[in-house]
Amino acid sequence: LGLGFGAAWGYICSLAPERNDPFAAPLRVLLLLAGGMGAVYGGSLVGYGGAGPLGCVAAGFVAICMWSRIGWDVEDNPAATAFEIFWMIFQPILFGITGARVKINELKPELLGLCLGVLITAIVIRMAITIFFSIGCKLNNKEKIFVSIAWMCKAIVQAALGPVALSLVPEDTDDHEAAEKILMTCILSIILTAPTGALLLTLLGPHLLTKATMPTLKEVRMRKKSRRLSIRDLTVPDTKLREEDEENHRMSVVPEETQENYI
């Protein structure tokens, strides 16, 4: 149900307003936003709470696929910019509301230990699976470890879905206790993985990654023969240096008299 509504709404967003409308960009943003909010709140009203977020994702995916056919860039477009601004506003509110649901003085030590155990186990498994699935790509071992650490951080989904279970079950029931465990695990995931991951990336980045340098043609050929290429072999060409090299080459093939006149 959520996928069907999202696909249909995304297609509608690609048709209206007409592409030559001077207010096409803001109207598309408002239309997509209205459809997403309607899906979330409407799904909750009819008893399909999980269909709403799924419809939002599907609507955005279909809309950007259709918009890209008429010239919009997938990553750099007015809709993406608008929703980035919305996220800057609502992200602190989301995390604040989620954190307010936790009462530190009512936490049970055994519950805290259980949540930590689940969280640490999940992190280890996630990092191991990330390294396993990176086998065969053009990354060396250090870069694979760096990617696994970068993907360790979890916060946004946990902040959004953590309080949902607690709000759906009545108090003084076994389900309510289970919902508290879920919320506690989500909070610990946010508190531990986000700052820890950022700190590890900052400290280990210089040791696991190597700054790219412009290799000579001979070095590139030797690397291709000796080992598998890595990310550090990829460099962004410097346009200014390239122009200077072309200018020097042109001056070297021009006769001296012509060079004096040229200068």
Rank of each mutant, 00 (worst) to 15 (best):
residue 154 K to L: 06
residue 178 A to E: 10
residue 148 S to V: 10
residue 175 D to I: 03
residue 172 D to Y: 12
residue 148 S to Q: 10
residue 168 L to A: 14
residue 174 D to V: 01
residue 149 I to E: 04
residue 152 M to A: 15
residue 172 D to C: 07
residue 158 Q to Y: 08
residue 149 I to H: 06
residue 178 A to I: 11
residue 174 D to Y: 03
residue 174 D to N: 07
residue 180 E to L: 09
residue 165 A to V: 12
residue 152 M to L: 15
residue 161 L to F: 11
residue 170 P to S: 08
residue 148 S to F: 09
residue 147 V to R: 07
residue 169 V to E: 00
residue 151 W to Y: 14
residue 177 E to S: 08
residue 172 D to T: 08
residue 157 V to K: 00
residue 159 A to Y: 00
residue 162 G to T: 05
residue 168 L to E: 14
residue 160 A to R: 00
residue 164 V to L: 13
residue 179 A to V: 01
residue 151 W to H: 14
residue 167 S to T: 14
residue 168 L to V: 11
residue 164 V to D: 03
residue 165 A to S: 12
residue 170 P to K: 04
residue 180 E to Y: 02
residue 153 C to G: 13
residue 156 I to W: 13
residue 179 A to Q: 03
residue 163 P to M: 06
residue 149 I to Y: 06
residue 146 F to Y: 15
residue 145 I to C: 08
residue 160 A to T: 07
residue 146 F to T: 05
residue 164 V to C: 07
residue 149 I to C: 09
residue 158 Q to G: 00
residue 170 P to W: 02
residue 171 E to W: 00
residue 162 G to S: 08
residue 168 L to C: 10
residue 159 A to W: 00
residue 172 D to F: 13
residue 179 A to S: 07
residue 156 I to H: 12
residue 166 L to R: 03
residue 154 K to P: 01
residue 177 E to A: 09
residue 152 M to Y: 11
residue 167 S to K: 14
residue 146 F to N: 11
residue 164 V to K: 07
residue 164 V to P: 02
residue 170 P to T: 04
residue 180 E to G: 01
residue 146 F to H: 14
residue 160 A to S: 12
residue 163 P to C: 08
residue 172 D to H: 13
residue 144 K to N: 03
residue 157 V to P: 00
residue 147 V to G: 08
residue 156 I to N: 13
residue 162 G to K: 05
residue 146 F to V: 07
residue 167 S to V: 10
residue 177 E to R: 08
residue 169 V to D: 00
residue 157 V to A: 09
residue 158 Q to M: 07
residue 169 V to H: 00
residue 165 A to W: 04
residue 162 G to E: 01
residue 178 A to L: 12
